[in-house]
Design a protein around this nucleic acid. Structure first.
Length: 479
RNA sequence: GGCGCGGUACCCAAGUGGUAAGGGAGAGGUCUGCAAAACCUUUAUGCGUGGGUUCGAUUCCCACCCGCGCCUCCA
């Protein structure tokens, strides 16, 4: 096992990862704002975060991972009001959709899913601590954070406060703030708007306070890892640091990990460009959940990922190759005994796989290790040199691979059905397929190839592909 | 302007001061009744451009060009 190293935005460097408590990791992820369906850009970050958590667990850490659902913000308030329903009812729909999307992409549930609106009291308590430490000031019914008092402000995003001047787009006319960069901890309600009555006044929380309050509530005042998209580094995470550390006097987060953005055909994804995709958009076009997950996971997280349909197709083929190999291991019979040379190669591949992921989650490198082994094992099997003695080790490597990448299981059909999309091969159950396969086998045995090819073609048209093995058996799979 | 990411074959992409992983796609081949799968061969004297350091640079230094992001509650 290799030393785990991660890129820490705080230092700007890749550094050894050592948790505060040996063997235990406390991690927080900024989740979605549930005002609409999440898009593939969001999921680039969530898949990264999922790969990270799965890898840490694979390495034996006890992980406590918290992910929030931001269920109150300007857009939510506006949309709920427009729909004439409560914030709770409005966001519930998108929360459920988000959970469904996560399941489709095999994004594991963190140990805690938490909603902002369930933690108003915690936010108020944190704001009161800040008040006591004189980091706040009121203005027109709202409460602001006084950045000038927090000397470390800018340490995450390396922003230079003294450099703010003409040209910088700073919103300084909307509120009466002491300084342009000061941000709202608590916002006074606008007329007719939903608000909470609290000891610090009526209103609703500012954006940043929820993450500080909830992260510390569930994970303590110093967490090991905090993840999010690169765009959140400033101002969101910078402000989280300011709030948390001003209240506790302790370091808030030890390792900040930020995922680069996803682009679509080289451009920023946006609704106006017409290159904006939700998972549902892609699944409706017939792409598989596993292909999307693979496409999102295979490019290392600190690299901008250029999403294209060609790339998604490539991912489909790449997953297929791995699944074919897994199926071969399962079905083929190997002679007893063992082959030291092959055993050695397996150990090397396992080591390379771990090395790749340990090196700041270099998924491309980890994947290469797996593909190297796939090729070499296939060669050995083709030559009849693969032995039963190596089977367990290969399967273990593949299982470990899948504990992180989670693409091997051939369950795309079920996932799509769960989301309301019908499987391409729907209508043909396993039994019906087996029956046709048997009929084709019979035709082949009497060398009636016209009949056997007719059945194969018929199955192919319904999304079922056949592979005739050397030993006479047939493997079928859904396309 | 400030901060940051990146420019490697047809596409995606790893990587190192010592002579370019891996995946996909294309072409040819082996196997197969034919396919599929698998395997083999093939596709970068070349790693944005120009200099420099070095015995040697894609990898280090300098300059430049290009793409993208953040600097406004966008993952």
């Amino acid at each position: 096992m290799h030393e785990i190293r991660v890129h820490n935005t705080l230092s700007g460097k890749v550094e050894p990862f050592v948790p505060l408590e040996p063997g235990e990791i406390r991690m927080y992820t900024c989740g979605p704002t549930v005002y609409d369906y999440a898009h593939i850009g969001n999921f680039r970050t969530f898949v990264f975060q999922d790969i990270l958590r799965r890898f840490l667990k694979l390495r034996g850490f006890k992980l406590t991972h918290v992910m929030n659902l931001t269920d109150v913000d300007d857009r939510i308030i506006a949309n709920a009001a427009k729909a004439g329903i409560s914030i709770r009812d409005y966001t519930e729909k998108y929360i459920q959709a988000f959970f469904a999307d996560c399941r489709a992409l095999s994004v594991e549930s963190p140990e805690h899913w938490i909603r902002a609106t369930d933690h108003i009291d915690d936010m108020v308590a944190l704001i009161q601590r800040l008040q006591k430490n004189t980091y706040t000031y009121p203005s027109e019914g709202s409460l602001y954070y006084r950045i000038a008092k927090f000397k470390d402000y800018g340490k995450l995003s390396k922003i230079d406060l003294t450099g703010i001047q003409a040209g910088a787009r700073v919103d300084n006319d909307r509120y009466d703030k002491e300084s342009a960069r000061d941000f709202a901890l608590w916002k006074a309600p606008k007329p007719g708007e939903h608000f909470w009555k609290t000891p610090i006044g009526a209103g609703r929380p500012g954006w940043h306070i929820e993450c500080s309050a909830m992260a510390m509530k569930y994970l303590g005042e110093t967490l090991d890892i905090h993840t999010g998209g690169i765009d959140l580094a400033f101002p969101h995470h910078e402000n989280e640091i300011a709030q948390s550390e001003a209240a506790t006097g302790k370091p808030f987060v030890r390792y900040w990990l930020h995922a680069e953005h996803l682009l679509v055909e080289g451009e920023k994804m946006s609704k106006s460009l017409g290159n904006f995709f939700t998972l549902r958009d892609l699944f409706a076009k017939g792409y598989k959940p596993s292909a999307l997950r693979f496409a999102l996971a295979s490019v290392p997280y600190r690299r901008q990922l250029n999403f294209t349909f060609d790339g998604l197709q490539q991912a489909t083929s790449s997953v297929e190759r791995l699944r074919n190999f897994a199926a071969r291991l399962k079905q083929e019979k190997f002679p007893a005994g063992s082959q030291p040379a092959i055993a050695e190669r397996i150990a090397k591949a396992a080591d390379d796989f771990d090395a790749g992921l340990s090196d700041d989650l270099n998924t491309a490198q980890a994947l290469a290790a797996v593909y190297d082994l796939v090729r070499e094992a296939n060669i050995a099997m083709d030559k009849g040199e693969f032995r039963q003695g190596e089977l367990a080790a290969v399967q273990e490597l593949l299982a470990n691979f899948d504990r992180v990448f989670a693409v091997l299981e051939d369950n795309d059909g079920e996932k799509l059905q769960a989301l309301g999309y019908t499987d391409a091969s729907s209508g043909l159950g396993d039994a019906a397929i087996e029956k046709l396969v048997a009929a084709r086998q019979a035709a082949r045995q009497r060398r009636d190839f016209a009949a056997s090819d007719r059945i194969r073609k018929e199955l192919a048209e319904r999304g079922i592909l056949l592979e005739d093995a050397k030993d006479g058996s047939v493997r079928w799979k859904r396309k």
